[in-house]
Design a protein around this nucleic acid. Structure first.
Lengths: 219, 219
DNA sequence: GAGCGCTTCCATCAATTGATGGAGAGTTCT
DNA sequence: AGAACTCTCCATCAATTGATGGAAGCGCTC
């Protein structure tokens, strides 16, 4: 339940919700420091003081954005888990890729924000705490790669991370990559899904042995 | 040839080179806007005016960093190409992964900077022009996936991108991912290489038909 | 030592940005 | 009408930041 989010946010026409929506888009497009409170206010069409009246510090507004996204993502995973019941591993993987890609392509700012959160070693990274641990555990369990969230092998987690990151990258960097591939948005979305499936499915379904770490590179 | 880089940069003790080195590290750690010229100057132990004397605008310094990295990366690809001659496809792929991982783990700020460049839609993204086109073409040719740089299929390019991005993410986000996997740096490096090989090699070497999704063993 | 070029630093500016105080405007309740 | 409450805006502050001008130090040649 979205119990954490206050009442005003339920109504998308409320000023607080309108500010949150604009902030989410702008933070996603420009990152934290390059998104000024003035810009957010101007986008909404209000004075900067009105923004501060509703949200207090800039960081609180940012945390509000992250919190909303966290809940959305968990909802996606619940959906994946539900739709995966009883399916084969390959089907589960493909469902997971389809659901997450549809969601992220529909909300590219989410991919932006998560990636920006990863690679920020500065001060304000602690607070945004995208809880990847939980996500990965959920995926592994939903995929049937582990019995419970706590016992997922390093290899499995690393592979899930690799796929998750690849999806985030393709979607977040669409403006950069799509021109390189010379295709239109719909084709891009299809190519991304196809590529992720092409890469992932064999990685988890074929008979690789996960034990043997390659001996240290010769030279 | 590093003909673009001026003489002063050849000497790593020169003030201009020292500033560049510090800027490279800081830009990589904190991004463009969060790295102030004052911070760079303080890191080098000089006054801010000295920095401006040698480099002019902040943006020029940033471009200097990107230019140096571009040349380094092209050097890595040349090395890959050279070491790949005559090897099998699988060996070529593994060499490429090893070389690029060794390089990026040794220069994590490069991974940071490239990723930051991808996802920045703002003003100052145009200038940094990480020329991925060229990189991808080089990889595809070195891997024997295409006859020349101009004719690489969309699928092949997308797969190379996916792998390249995964590598960048693992290395750039090490501070974030490694604790999640609960392993030490050396093991992390090994796991990353293993994961990339595990994912990539089947994707390019197995008898997948690029049209149909994996006709792999049922589960 | 005078002159000159190169390098460095101190002082300072203008613009931006996060943040606040206080004054209105609108509504509701008494 | 008037008190009380909610919401919005104008004016403003202090700190940060990119950038510059000018003076001083240093090494060199004449």
């Amino acid at each position: 339940m979205a119990s954490r989010l206050e009442k005003a946010l339920q109504n998308p026409d409320s000023m607080k919700a309108r500010i949150l929506a604009a902030a989410r888009r702008l933070f996603g497009e420009r990152g934290y420091t390059e998104t000024t409170t003035r810009l957010i206010a101007r986008t909404v069409g209000i004075d900067i003081s009105t923004l501060y009246y509703h949200w207090g510090e800039k960081r609180d507004l940012y945390e509000g954005v992250i919190a909303a996204i966290n809940e959305e993502i968990l909802g996606q995973f619940r959906q994946i888990e539900q739709r995966c019941r009883g399916a084969s591993l390959r089907t589960r993987l493909e469902i997971a890729i389809d659901v997450m890609c549809d969601y992220l392509f529909g909300h590219p700012e989410v991919a932006h924000l998560i990636l920006l959160a990863y690679f920020r070693t500065s001060e304000h990274n602690v607070l945004l705490d995208i809880n990847m641990d939980k996500y990965i555990g959920n995926i592994a369990v939903a995929m049937g790669l582990a019995a419970d969230r706590e016992h997922v092998s390093v290899q499995a987690r690393a592979r899930i991370l690799a796929l998750w990151n690849a999806a985030l990258n393709f979607i977040s960097g669409q403006a950069f990559f799509r021109p390189m591939l010379g295709i239109d948005p719909a084709a891009y979305e299809a190519v991304v899904k196809e590529t992720l499936k092409f890469i992932l499915v064999p990685a988890f379904t074929s008979a690789h042995d996960p034990e043997t770490l390659p001996g240290a590179p010769g030279d």
